[in-house]
């Protein structure tokens, strides 16, 4: 079956069983490999992408549920000009990743959090991020990264006003 998707702003058409999890369509059909497989059961968050700007676990989202909608992956959150999203920059500044495998998912969850909540409390961070496992234990740095990105975004917004 043919399904239309908008991925990182580009219109795409894939021929695929509509039950196929979005994760495997993104990776195998669209060749966007930044989104990772960790558990296949919505338990770890490694596969997190945005569906209409909301974080979803792509491993348990059938591709038909994403038909004709907007999907954003880790490859699509920076600016078109190649500059990093504030969260990505904060991740570098705080030296967050270790093995790095979970980090696309972590960043997608963090970006979604900051899009709706510019001043997250520790509880807000816990709530938004507890679905993302990091087996390397980068949690303390993820927390610092989110705080730093929030501060940067607040300054940017202030500067624009």
């Amino acid at each position: 079956m043919s399904i239309k998707l908008t991925v990182n702003g580009e219109a795409k058409k894939v021929e695929v069983d509509p039950d196929t999890p979005l994760l495997w369509v993104i990776r195998e059909q669209l060749g966007l490999l930044g989104t990772k497989f960790g558990c296949g059961k919505a338990l770890c968050g490694a596969c997190t992408v945005h569906l209409n700007d909301r974080p979803v676990r792509s491993c348990t989202t059938p591709v038909r549920a994403a038909a004709d909608q907007r999907i954003t992956t880790i490859e699509g959150i920076g600016s078109a000009a190649g500059t990093l999203h504030a969260v990505q920059q904060a991740w570098i500044d705080e030296q967050v990743p270790q093995c790095g495998y979970c980090q696309s998912g972590q960043i997608m969850s963090a970006v979604a959090l900051l899009a709706t909540n510019q001043t997250p409390t520790d509880q807000d961070i816990d709530h938004a991020m507890r679905g993302n496992i990091c087996r390397c234990g980068t949690y303390p740095r993820i927390r610092n990264g989110i705080r730093r990105a929030a501060a940067v975004l607040a300054t940017d917004t202030g500067a624009k006003e």
Partner: peptide, 15 residues
Amino acid sequence: PRFDIPAKVDGSAKF
């Protein structure tokens, strides 16, 4: 700063 980190924030690191 670690060499491997930039590729691990934009999805380009190859596992």
